[in-house]
Computed example of a mutant assay.
Amino acid sequence: MKQIEQYSCFVGTQSVWEHFSHSLNCQMKFAIYLPKQAGNQKLPVLYWLSGLTCSEQNFITKSGFQRYAAELGVIVVAPDTSPRGADVPNDDAYDLGQGAGFYLNATQEPWAKHFKMYDYIVDELPDLINAHFPTNGKQAISGHSMGGHGALTIGLKNPDRYASVSAFSPIVAPSQVPWGQKAFLAYLGENAQDWQIYDSVELIKQGKKLPHILVDQGLADQFLNEQLKLNLLEQVCETHGQNAQIRYHEGYDHSYYFIASFIGEHLAYHAKRLAA
């Protein structure tokens, strides 16, 4: 691993590291915030998954989470959203290829060699973080938009790994919306049954369950009706007994202004469950 950035922030340190990922077959970057408590004790980790077009930079520069992580004593890790590099396949569109990994394991060419973001987030990155930083083994996961989709599906498929799961403006039923359909067709192929293991609504229908889910959604979000469809998550949670708090907020859109407004509540939500 190589550290490429470090800044003092709320008496802790915000840094960015680069390493070779065996899951993704390329160099990857992740950001990590270490509060001052990490100097003398092991702490829990919150993994944050960002959305389409984002890198490891968006969350750490726009959300203001560091203030709350410092107060609560939580390490926060924000990886990049896809494999990167000249040898990694890409697409001219913003919603496919680099910057659009969708937190799945691609099975189709030319994507299969590099696009294994599910394995990277679930296994490789936590192993790396636990080996090099003062963690106590407890972890939570959250994310925004495509990253909200990633947090929900990864949490539902691995309930024993995460003390808590939350999301902002998540793509909850990617099999039923243009963003997800485009990505799934390219990465996973034409068999729609293969898509279901990366679809939160379908996973809950299949009986996957978490102790609780927290979701925040802005009602002025330009993607709500076509791409996010939070009503489908509400319906399936009610039908299948999934405990969820889905909060709607007047006037808020899909931007980091929305995330910054409520990230403190999400950090407190996770810190409480990580301490249990």
Rank of each mutant, 00 (worst) to 15 (best):
G180P: 09
A93T: 15
G264C: 01
Q37C: 02
G64S: 10
M28K: 12
E234S: 10
A220Q: 14
K42G: 00
Y7W: 03
H114A: 04
Q181I: 14
D194M: 12
L232D: 13
K62N: 13
L43G: 02
D95N: 15
Y187L: 11
H149W: 00
A275D: 14
G148P: 01
T239S: 08
F184H: 12
S142N: 12
D87A: 11
R84Q: 10
I32D: 05
Y162G: 07
M117C: 03
I259A: 15
S255A: 05
A140C: 03
L96T: 10
N225D: 14
K2R: 15
H149G: 02
A275L: 13
G73V: 06
Q227C: 05
Y269S: 10
I213A: 00
V165M: 00
Y103Q: 05
Y257D: 11
Y252V: 02
D95T: 12
F59N: 09
M146W: 04
L52Q: 10
V76K: 13
Y252G: 00
P110W: 01
A186T: 09
D160I: 06
A244D: 08
K182G: 09
L156D: 07
P110E: 12
P35V: 03
D127N: 07
L232Y: 11
E190K: 13
S142G: 07
D95H: 14
T135M: 06
H240Q: 14
E109W: 00
V77E: 07
G241Y: 02
F258C: 10
E71R: 10
Y162C: 06
F262E: 15
A163Y: 02
Q242L: 07
Q242M: 11
S164M: 11
N105E: 05
G218V: 09
K182I: 08
G148C: 02
K138I: 10
L203K: 03
A260K: 09
L128A: 01
L214G: 14
L214P: 14
L214I: 14
Q98T: 04
G101K: 07
D91E: 11
V215N: 04
A275I: 07
S145W: 05
L125R: 05
V236W: 01
K205S: 09
Y256E: 06
K113V: 06
E234G: 13
H19Q: 04
N231P: 00
R273I: 06
A275K: 15
H254W: 04
S15L: 05
P134C: 07
D87Q: 10
Q98V: 01
Q176C: 04
A112Q: 11
I141L: 15
K62Y: 04
V11S: 03
K62A: 11
L188I: 02
Y68R: 07
T53Q: 05
G101Q: 09
I213S: 07
N105A: 09
I60T: 14
K208F: 12
Q14A: 07
A276V: 09
C9R: 12
V215E: 00
Q139P: 02
L43F: 01
Q227W: 04
F65L: 13
D221C: 14
N243K: 06
I246E: 01
A38R: 10
N130R: 10
L104V: 14
Y94S: 11
N191F: 08
